[in-house]
């Protein structure tokens, strides 16, 4: 969906070949999401079947242009907020759920290793942002900010997990001590 709408958006600026569409898409997204030409032509065929694009010129040169229906679909995409998706399975969440209380695995160590990896990734994104020219490519900065906020959210969640873990630990120890005291009294 996102690739087909992006192709419609680029074609809305003027007719283009598959390779031009690929290059334009990758320039706007800083090559973070590479596209292959085959994927572009498959998408174009689907869009043509649905009447959203048509061959430009005499049809021999494989360039495409957007149709009136295509433009209407594109504008609807901009107008309507994306539907909230049901949460997918997240490997990191599962990893922590499985780590808690497991013998031989320290959930705290797992959290720190993941946090460190996330911070390294944030450093990479931030370096790209530092080097980016705000005037030249605003879209690239939008994309970097999106990656940065998603990674930051992961770190904040890890921080919260760690704080909960630390609070739970003394409680678990206290509960165990109380249980063993009760046991003593019974004996």
């Amino acid at each position: 969906m996102s690739v087909s709408m992006s192709i419609l958006a680029i074609l809305d600026d003027g007719p283009a070949y598959g390779l031009q569409l690929k290059n334009d898409f990758e320039t706007r997204t800083g090559s973070i999401w590479p596209l292959n030409v085959g994927q572009v032509y498959t998408t174009l065929s689907r869009l043509e079947r649905d009447g959203l694009v048509r061959p430009a010129g005499n049809g021999d040169d494989k360039s495409y242009q957007i149709t009136r229906e295509g433009r209407a679909r594109l504008m609807a995409w901009f107008d309507e907020p994306l539907e909230a998706r049901s949460p997918g399975r997240d490997e990191l969440v599962l990893k922590l759920i499985m780590a808690v209380g497991r013998k031989g695995v320290s959930a705290g160590d797992v959290i720190q290793a993941e946090r460190k990896a996330a911070i390294r990734q944030l450093q990479d994104y931030t370096k790209l942002k530092r080097e980016a020219d705000a005037a030249a490519n605003l879209g690239w900065l939008f994309l970097l900010d999106s990656l940065i906020f998603q990674t930051e959210a992961r770190v904040r969640w890890l921080d919260a997990c760690e704080a909960r873990l630390r609070r739970a630990r003394p409680f678990t120890q206290r509960a165990r001590r109380a249980a063993s005291d009760r046991e003593e009294v019974r004996r």
Binding site: R115, K116, A118, I119, L122, I148, F149, T151, E152, R156
Partner: peptide, 15 residues
Amino acid sequence: THDARFAAWGDRVIF
């Protein structure tokens, strides 16, 4: 800082 987004501006991050 306690904020990862800003800590990432550092060459190194100490925890």
